[in-house]
Design a protein around this nucleic acid. Structure first.
Lengths: 335, 335
DNA sequence: TTTTTTTACGAAAACGTTTTCTAAAACGAA
DNA sequence: TTCGTTTTAGAAAACGTTTTCGTAAAAAAA
């Protein structure tokens, strides 16, 4: 079905293309009567402007990109929900890109976006993240850019995160209060902003309670769930196994539950568990899981709002929001 | 930063725009030497074609849309994963739209897509779905369209679902085998294809086992979680409360767990629970949840594959795939 | 009445590609 | 040498908008 365009309308109305265009855009140059006629026919024929012609002419795409490491993760789905709600308010479209924690893919994706396809980018970094040329490239293109959760500290761009250091500290302190002395940390790569901060909070809490940091209790986890599981299992099979576990992402908590189930190590009696998580089911796990829960929806909303501000102002400022996470005590830490 | 375009390249190379374009598109008309020169400069200047100019000219957007009711749902995130993997293989971009189970939003979104913004649409219907004019509209525009999971049966379009009838039957039969006689069904709206089929499976299973269908054991749930919770709680407070519950989506199982916890009704002793779910945590719930699990990733992949076939062939056929769900027995049904 | 300004519209350029059409040069065959 | 064919490249049209500019006619001002 041939779609109707300005030419077609102009022809039928016996007007010029420019007049029709201006009428539809409510230009002051056009008589109310003409506007009415044009609008009427446009409605009747269900005229819809071609978005690509418009984008080409206006150098605006009405589209933003969201780049995230994975989507099968409640934090990111909630964040997307927040982003989408704001994007819709602004009449914007949302492109989704998944890096699958793969640095190379992240580079490819950012390069895809350098050609004006989007008016702005929301991004949470992948973890295999050594070089950061691609981020500087994006920045050089003057493309509005807002990082959320996993931010790149060195770049002058807007950032929205949670209080990861404090949360890491509180999580660890909570385990200590519950009587743990050998506390393991299931860490995400520390080249990630949040990985580093959560780890620092963990270490500081140990220090403040005169507990020495033991390197062998810090498990460097990756995006490979099978390897993570193997690490955790190995950890729990040691004879000097930990009596507390602080998992930095929800998947690692699940792995821990699984390992403990297989090894018949009861939670929380033998080992207490706390985790960063946005699991809806946290309260119904066996045992219910003590979590540090990030305001994911709010993070998404705020990141998107800042992005749209940057798009409107053409002004990428060095914004930094830190939203508070909340610690919810449940049975897995003996509460 | 001004981005480099064909004109710029042509100028620097002392060639015409068309020659440069053809060289980059590896046209036979261009001499290898010229191609080399062009490619070299293009690489050096990091030339990237403007996607909107290209889309406008070629009447192709290299973009598909995914319309889903919600994203905070493991089925849909897994499906998106599958979709994204195929889309990337084809060099396509993926736009995400959420209807939030709102019919009006669904209509708006489908209308947004009628103007050539996307080359194809993947869709899972919202539940408040009475009229379906908007779907016919989409179809009339000859826009390749593939439904997945929540399909619209009446339209001649490709569809990918699971064996919902059989799964509903098996779920119910499993509860019966486990000794349940008063089996409630937490149903999603039956104007949804899957809602109807799951319900039919439920009823047939009861019939086949000489158990009468009781209308008051069929709870019509909606997208309003609070109301759902209230319904379930009311159900479990009856003196003739059910001894088995078949939940048609995972959120309803969570609600059930919550209600039973509050009312101190032990699962599975007093009531057995089975649910459609893609929860990673199903095995670690208290008690572990017996699920019917859909091959969500595979559904996404297959739906996307069919869509790209339709896009390539410009031929929207009446495809119908049915993938098998699997019943995983766990403690919530006494296994 | 004449001049100036305003009104309301149209022509054409521009956005950055791809593609079709045209043309010059080179080449081969007669 | 001449004629046709192939090779290589450029000119121009096209995609569908928006926007700048130009210009009649009408209105206002002189």
């Amino acid at each position: 079905m041939k779609s109707v365009n300005l030419k077609e309308l102009a022809l039928q109305l016996n007007l010029s293309i420019s007049t029709v265009s201006k009428a539809l855009n409510d230009s002051y140059e056009i008589t109310p009567e003409t506007k009415r006629r044009v609008q009427e026919l446009a409605d009747a024929l269900h005229y819809q402007p071609n978005p690509y012609a418009r984008s080409l002419r206006k150098q605006k795409s009405k589209t933003i990109a969201v780049i995230i490491p994975e989507i099968a993760n409640n934090f990111f789905t909630l964040a997307i929900n927040g982003i989408e709600s704001i994007a819709r308010q602004h009449g914007y479209h949302v492109l989704i890109y998944l890096t699958h924690e793969d640095y190379q893919k992240e580079v490819e994706i950012t390069q895809l976006l350098q050609n004006g396809r989007v008016d702005g980018v929301l991004m949470s970094l992948s973890s295999n993240n050594n070089e950061n040329e691609h981020l500087y490239d994006l920045h050089k293109k003057m493309l509005p850019l807002v990082f959320f959760d996993r931010v790149f500290e060195d770049l002058e761009a807007a950032k929205v995160t949670t209080d990861d250091y404090e949360s890491g500290y509180k999580a660890t302190a909570h385990l200590i209060e519950q009587g743990c002395r050998r506390i393991a940390h299931l860490a995400i790569p520390k080249d990630l902003s949040i990985g580093k901060k959560r780890m620092q909070g963990y270490m500081q809490a140990l220090n403040d309670h005169q507990i020495p940091v033991q390197e062998d209790l810090i498990i460097a986890c990756t995006d490979n769930q099978q390897m993570n599981y193997a690490f955790i299992r190995e950890l729990m099979e040691r004879k000097d196994r930990p009596d507390g576990i602080f998992a930095s992402v929800e998947k690692l908590a699940i792995n821990t539950y699984q390992a403990c189930a297989e090894l018949h190590i009861p939670i929380p009696e033998e080992v207490k568990v706390i985790s960063f998580a946005n699991l809806e089911t946290a309260a119904f796990l066996n045992p219910s899981l003590t979590t540090i829960t990030q305001p994911a929806f709010e993070i998404g909303k705020q990141a998107a709002s800042i992005l749209f501000e940057a798009i409107k102002m053409k002004n990428i400022k060095n914004h930094y929001s830190i939203l508070k996470s909340v610690l919810i005590k449940r049975k897995s830490t003996g509460c």
